[in-house]
Design a binder for these strands. Structure first.
Lengths: 253, 253
DNA sequence: CGGTACCTTGAGGTTACTCAAATCCAGTGG
DNA sequence: CCACTGGATTTGAGTAACCTCAAGGTACCG
C-alpha cells in the first residue's frame, strides 16, 4: 500500500491553473491573475473520487467548493419522502457546491458517476475570498444565475414537453457539452444509467428506453447500452426544437 | 392631467425603509443601517404599476431592481416558440429582477397581476453598491440561492407530481405566504387567472378547474372564481404532502 | 343589457405509467 | 475461455391520468 505511488499523487505536477487543460472551461479563467494566484495557494488539485463516492451529502456543512477536472458528477436532492430528484449532471470544468454559499450547508447531494477527479477549494477560504473580492462575487453571481437559467430550462423540459422531446433535448445537450470538451459530439458514452436519465427528465425508465429504441428504429441514433451514436443530427435537433405542436402538453398562450 | 395630484405622489410620505410596513419582509431588513441609508438615497418608493403593466420585458437592459410593495406580480419566460412559461408569482416584500445581475439584461418578463406598487432601485446604483458592499453581495447571493431552491422545488412539483398534488401544493403555498403578510390564510383571492395557475403548474386550464371543483365536492375548499376558502386545512395539507403513492409519476429509487 | 373573457363541465382520445417478463451485459469464479 | 449471476435494459400488454375538443355557464364592464 505504501510502496506504490498513491493515486492522489498522479497529476499533481501542475502547480497552477494556467497549466490546466480545463482552464478555458473553468471559472478560474474569469477572475483576475491575482485572485487566481490566491486560489492557487489553497486549491487542492486533481483529487480522485471513485465511482459512487459522494463529494458531499445534503445537509452537510460545506467543506469545499469543487470543480470537476475529469469524469462526471450527478447532483440530486432528496424529497421529503426520501425520493431522489436528479437536478444536474456536471462535466469537466463545471463548479459544484455553489448553492451552499448562502447557508454554509449543501442543500443537495453530489456523487461521482465514474472515477473522476476534482479540484477543491476549502469552503472557508472560498467564503473569505468572496468577502474581499467583489470580482469573484460577480463571477459567482453570474454562475449562480446561469445555473438558475438552466434550472428554469429544465423546468420547461420536465414539466411541459413530451417524452420524445425531452430525450432529444437531453441527447443534444450532452452532445454539445461534450463537444466543447473536445469529445466527438456524434459518438459518446452516457455515464449515468437509465434510471438517472429518467429521473432527470421526469419520466420512467421504460419510457426513456422505449423512446431511445424508437429513435434507433427511425435511424436517428444508434444505442448500445450507454453508448450513443448520432446518425442524423439535424433530425435529432428538430425533435429537440419541436417543443410546440404535439410536444407541448398544456395551454401556454 | 397636471392639476390633479399624480397617483405617483400618494404614499410618498415615507422617506425611509424603517417606516415601511413591509420592512420585516424586505431584503432591506437584512443589510446594515449604513447600506440601508445608501439605498434610501436612491430608492424610488411606492411606484404605481397598473394591472397588466410590465415591470420589464425579457431581453431588456435592466433599469431597476424592484421590490413589491403591494399587489402581486407574475414572472414569466418566453420559450423559443414564443410560449409563455410562468416561473413565479411575487408578493409584497419580494424582490424582482435579481437574475439580471449577471447579464445586465432581464432574462424574463415581469407583469403586474393587479394594480400594485413597487420600490425601485436604479440598476446602476444597485450594481455599484454590489461592487463595494460584500454584505449586500451576501444577501443577494442568499436570495438568489433561495430562489434557486424554490425553482428546484417547482421542478419537483411540475415534473413529477399528479395534478391534485400540484394544485394542493399551490394553494398551500399561497395560503402560507399570504399568512406571513397578515392576511387570512383560510380565505383569500387568487390574483392570477386559471391560465396562469395552469401554466405555472404545468397543467391545462381544464385540469386545474376540474381539480378545484373536485376539491370543492370533497369539501376541502370552497371556490368561487378567484376566491378560495380553505375548509379543511389538514386534508389539504395531506394532499400536498402526498407526493408519494399515487402522486409520483416515475421511478425515483 | 349585451358583449367578451373567463371558467366549468362533458366526452373521447392519447400519452406515458404500471406491472410483468424476456433479454442483455459486466463482472465473477471455475 | 466459458458458464453463471445479479443488475440493468428492453419489450409487451393493459390502464389511468391528463389532454383535446366542444359546449354551456358566469361574471364583469361598458
Amino acid at each position: 500500500m505504501s510502496d506504490k505511488p498513491k493515486i492522489s499523487e498522479i497529476g499533481q505536477k501542475e502547480t497552477s491553473c494556467d497549466d490546466c487543460s480545463m482552464f478555458s472551461l473553468c471559472f478560474a479563467h474569469d477572475v483576475s491573475a491575482e485572485e487566481r494566484e490566491e486560489i492557487n495557494r489553497v486549491l487542492k488539485r486533481q483529487q480522485p473520487v471513485e465511482r459512487s463516492d459522494h463529494l458531499f451529502h445534503g445537509g452537510q456543512t460545506a467543506k469545499t467548493v469543487s470543480v470537476v477536472r475529469s469524469g462526471s458528477v450527478k447532483a440530486y436532492q432528496l424529497s421529503q419522502e426520501g425520493d431522489e430528484i436528479v437536478s444536474a449532471f456536471y462535466l469537466p470544468g463545471e463548479i459544484i457546491g455553489l448553492d451552499a454559499i448562502s447557508g454554509e450547508r449543501h442543500p443537495g447531494f453530489a456523487v461521482a458517476l465514474e472515477d473522476s477527479r476534482t479540484c477543491e477549494i476549502p469552503f472557508k477560504d472560498f467564503v473569505s475570498m468572496l468577502k474581499t473580492s467583489p470580482k469573484l462575487n460577480q463571477v459567482m453571481l453570474r454562475l449562480l444565475s446561469e445555473e438558475m437559467a438552466e434550472t428554469r430550462e429544465l423546468l420547461l423540459v420536465v414539466g411541459r414537453l413530451d417524452a420524445r422531446t425531452r430525450v432529444a433535448l437531453f441527447l443534444m445537450s450532452m452532445s454539445r457539452r461534450l463537444a466543447r470538451r473536445n469529445q466527438d459530439p456524434d459518438q459518446f458514452r452516457l455515464t449515468m444509467d437509465r434510471r438517472d436519465i429518467a429521473n432527470y427528465l421526469g419520466l420512467t425508465i421504460e419510457t426513456v428506453s422505449r423512446t431511445l429504441s424508437a429513435m434507433q428504429r427511425e435511424e436517428v441514433i444508434e444505442v448500445r447500452g450507454k453508448l450513443v451514436r448520432v446518425l442524423n443530427r439535424s433530425v435529432l435537433e428538430e425533435m429537440a426544437m419541436k417543443a410546440d405542436e404535439v410536444g407541448r402538453r398544456q395551454a401556454t398562450g
